[in-house]
Design a protein around this nucleic acid. Structure first.
Lengths: 181, 181, 181, 181
DNA sequence: TATGAATGAGGCTTCATTCAT
DNA sequence: AATGAATGAAGCCTCATTCAT
């Protein structure tokens, strides 16, 4: 798929990637707000001025990273839902993919997960159409699912815990609700 | 109830409050990380050095604010749950108080809400004991409820929407789950 | 000799002394230049403003301390010289008193020693008159003696060493000079 | 002898020297302790931040200056001693070079002179070996000579006076001692 | 007279950004 | 394009000093 680029452009792409990689590293280490442009440059073999040939601010780097993350993340996050034949399978696929992703990549943030919010809602709409779920406010449900999944994932990371068990519990919760029999 | 204080102490209390109020304002406007100590001072009629007579860092101000928020917030957040006779009343009380608080006070953050997490869990435990809910993982449920409520509240604020309706929808979602009949 | 003072004045004197004592302590610990007025106050049970009822600057405190030191120091420094019957006794008395004082009181500085320079010169003049020394430039000799004594004392303090032995060596040096026989 | 440097490096060297020169000036004027980094910058056409491209603290500048001084000073200070054929010539060379240096360069400090202490001691050892001096404690003698020379030089500068005459007097003092005939 | 909080100047340092090379 | 030093604004914090109590 990769096109052969003239050398100039290849180097340009490389430098851009160097900056993005350095930025990802320092963002993960120190958090976006604490990071300075200097930090990003220092995480790179490049010189200070070079940064401005590629980006004009930290903000812009963040956007580029979010795009990267979205591209990598969204398919992983949506995994298994299309094939779900029941509500339980759907929810279980959703929670386990969130927990897996959060467990794998330390730097992942709530904001990053939101990249998958639209997909989730679309999949929910599809599932409703297929009769997996009763008709309901899929926008609200998507938001609630994502927030709950992220929060529980955060608790898993912090306190330790078994992702498989958490997946089961969360699935059961959203599946049957809290109403006593 | 207020004791009469000597003037010096009264002014000290006032200045401390000026700083806290200014800080709350700028935190809400720019977010904690973006705010500098100078920003806080500038949101105040006081001189630069005066800040350090009361706090030694932005961090310390944050703690003081969290304490204030917790004191004001927690009772409001817990309102109506103790009297709930059914699971539906419980959830409805919870969601409506979160939506009301988030709607009222712009600067409220997820972190602030977490101050009420312990209370929520205790109330859930009590409700389980009273038979309102079946036995379940109240810690996870509390986290999921809080996260979902906060996320939905955020959407309400951003996109507009009716808190009463959102309360109903959220309650219904958590009450009965998503399983089709 | 102490006159009974009315209570007011007694307290004033006490506070003044508190400041001087605190200042001496912090000067010795951190060195005059590194010390701030705040440091002096902090070494005192008094409040910030009180300092300015007694002194107007760190400089003024230093002067007052120098006076105190001079009063205490000069007699000690001059000890034994008046009774000296020979040049050797004179020099020996001089060196041993310098070494003793420097060894005793850590905070003593070259500048403090200079308080005794005039005395030394006078005693040298007297000794010349008594025939202990040949006629010579007593001003230069006094300066040279004091500087050498201080330098050697500094070396004693730093490297360890026996004051008695150093006294002997220094005396011998100045007594007979360095000319080979 | 000077190599031609690319422009960038030439400017770097120039700026470094600008800082050192400015620092030397303000140290001489106000004394090391009283000087701030800002004072050094202000004694320079450079901008505030530029200082930190070259040094990280006032301390570091001092070290660099001491190195400079040592390189320039030590040879001058040692002048004429190697060729001395008698104790008198040795002492005379020593005192006159100290007086000359102190007279020339106002900013010279006792601490700077100490850079030459080791040399002096070595030369004294050599002179003892050559029989110019009787065997004696050359470490103590070197310290005493340096301190006395500095003190007398300070008096010369302050009170005026003839360096040649002072050299003669100091030489005579250390040569023959103070013992009456 | 003693107190101690308020003041704002000023020191130190890092930063984003520019620009000559 | 890449470099990396220069810039000066701006953040942090401490200080000397004042002054209402």
């Amino acid at each position: 798929m990769d096109t052969v680029l003239p050398k100039r452009q290849r180097i340009k792409q490389q430098n851009r990637q160097l900056i993005l990689d350095g930025a990802r590293r320092v963002f993960a280490e120190q958090g976006y707000d604490a990071v300075t442009v200097r930090d990003i440059i220092r995480a790179t073999p490049l010189a200070a001025g070079t940064f401005y040939n590629y980006f004009t601010s930290k903000e812009e780097v963040r956007h580029a990273l979010e795009d990267e993350i979205a591209v990598l993340l969204r398919p992983r996050l949506a995994e298994g839902r299309a094939e779900a034949g029941t509500a339980e399978e759907f929810l279980s696929a959703f929670f386990s993919s969130v927990f897996a992703l959060r467990t794998e990549s330390g730097g992942l943030e709530r904001a990053d997960l939101r990249a998958g919010l639209g997909d989730l809602r679309e999949d929910l709409d599809g599932a409703v159409a297929r009769g997996l779920f009763p008709p309901l406010d899929t926008a609200a449900l998507a938001a609630a699912l994502l927030a709950a999944a992220d929060e529980i994932a955060g608790r898993l990371l912090r306190d330790g815990g078994d992702p498989a068990h958490a997946t089961q519990a969360a699935t059961k919760l959203f599946l049957g609700g809290v109403e006593p029999p």
